Amino acid sequence: MSSTYTASITAPVNIATLKYWGKRDTSLNLPTNSSISVTLDQADLKTTTSAMASADFTKDRLWLNGEEDLQLSQSKRLTQVLSSLKEKRRLREAKDESLEKISSWFVHIVSVNNFPTAAGLASSAAGFAALVVCIAKLFELDDDMTELSKIARQGSGSACRSLFGGFVAWEMGSLADGSDSKAVEVCPLNHWPEMKACVLVACADKKDVSSTSGMQLTVKTSDLFQKRIDEVVPERFEQMKKSIHDKNFALFAELTMKDSNSFHATCLDSYPPIFYMNDTSKKIVKLVHLINAFYNETIVAYTFDAGPNAVLYYLEQNELKLMSFIYAMFKDLNGWETKYSTEELNKFISNYDSLKLQELSLDMEIVKGCTRVILTRVGPGPLTIKESLINEHGFPKN
């Protein structure tokens, strides 16, 4: 086999606190509103991607979670991303004749998620972020993450936000060519490291209506949608950035929950209506408001993407308060033992008893609508790793 170039990257999931929903240009993935997200720790949710370029390869190939995507050539978004990255490499080669002309080579890509794909857990965001950063490293591009975010956006809109850690904004931009629609850092990970998240996976099945088709239906048919993008989100965008800068959790939580409600209201206002939340999701909404009312302060916020899974944001200092409820009600799910010792879990239960929470007539059946819990926190952006998923011949190792 002739010379090869390889690279391996891990990229994170991000969960929006100010939702992106609706496109002004579907081919370029240009949004109708700006958005904000929290990048989650890759110890818990990540995509790992390895890529190899070789003059011996006869076509671009992709393996996702062990299965080859035989429709790769028909995936307009993926081929667009690859061609944009190859063009950037070609321009470098044109300026520096000493560089090997690998922009004309085909690439093999192997990608693995450590969470369910297409189940409302932002798998496409992590996947395209990993792919873009991995190929950029393979091609030895010197573009910064904001510049690369414009390419990641073409693959999956939310992917642009997974190019940064901490707290991230996707500025919608206004130019027709999308050159000002990009991700920027709001605050780094170390600004507010106390931010944690508890994901209650309500359903790991593939969703009925994809985000792409759901967005377009909302844009075409929802009366609420126009007010959301014209008035609600622009004001909220500035307020949420300020709440993060000021580390004002009460305001951050209120804006996060209101925006989740607003987003799902526009889905419900679409015709025919789109239901991403299910009965379990709605019960979790009620539970969060009950918890905040019980403590007479806002200690937890919910948000739901285009799926039924609940993401609960809270600060580390309020963990005992929150988990006295959540662990008592969801202790039968997998995921607790990897994060807490038996002593810590017992402390949650004893606090549940001492607070006499059983007197609140909590819906203890709610756990039956969930499959697992993922406990995580704010985390870093894409990371370079040494281990490769690709063998020396350009195929998946496993």
Rank of each mutant, 00 (worst) to 15 (best):
K23D: 12
N14K: 13
P116E: 02
P396H: 06
E344A: 08
L224W: 00
V199F: 14
N65C: 05
A129W: 09
V81M: 12
D353F: 02
D363Y: 02
K182A: 15
A53Y: 02
T6N: 09
A130K: 00
W105D: 15
F106I: 05
V133Q: 11
A293N: 15
E238C: 04
N318L: 03
S222G: 04
R61D: 11
E254C: 02
F275N: 11
L383T: 14
N33I: 00
D41R: 00
E140G: 14
I385H: 05
T221H: 10
K59E: 15
E100N: 13
D363F: 04
A118P: 02
D96H: 15
F294W: 07
R24N: 04
D56A: 14
L85M: 02
T218C: 13
L290M: 13
T146I: 05
S281P: 06
T218P: 10
L175Y: 02
W336V: 09
T376M: 01
Y271G: 04
L18H: 02
L175C: 08
H264P: 01
T384H: 08
P193M: 04
E344S: 13
R90S: 09
D305S: 03
L320T: 06
L224H: 01
T280Y: 14
S27Y: 03
L362C: 07
P382K: 13
A253T: 04
L141W: 09
I366C: 14
K356S: 06
Q71M: 10
H289T: 09
Q80H: 11
A183D: 01
V367G: 03
E359Y: 08
P234H: 04
Q71K: 15
L45Y: 09
M323E: 06
G173L: 14
S158V: 04
N33V: 00
A301V: 12
R372Q: 15
S54Q: 07
E343P: 00
F106A: 11
M195Y: 01
L255E: 00
Y314W: 12
H264D: 03
F348A: 06
F249Y: 14
S213D: 15
T266P: 00
L333K: 01
V209R: 07
K86C: 05
K397G: 02
A125H: 06
G381I: 02
P193W: 04
D259F: 00
I299A: 06
I244M: 10
M240G: 03
G307D: 06
C203T: 03
I102C: 11
L64Q: 13
D353I: 12
L355Y: 11
F237R: 06
L40I: 05
A125G: 07
A122F: 12
M364Y: 14
S222T: 05
N33P: 01
S8I: 08
E100W: 06
N318Q: 13
S260N: 02
K101T: 14
T117S: 14
S222D: 03
A130P: 10
L355S: 08
L28K: 12
R24M: 06
V112E: 10
N29F: 04
D208H: 09
N318S: 10
F225L: 11
L121N: 07
T58H: 09
Y313M: 09
I299V: 15
D259N: 14
S156V: 12
D177F: 00
T376K: 01
G173I: 05
E140T: 06
M145E: 04
S210Q: 04
G155F: 02
T26I: 12
L287S: 05
S210E: 02
L40R: 01
M364E: 11
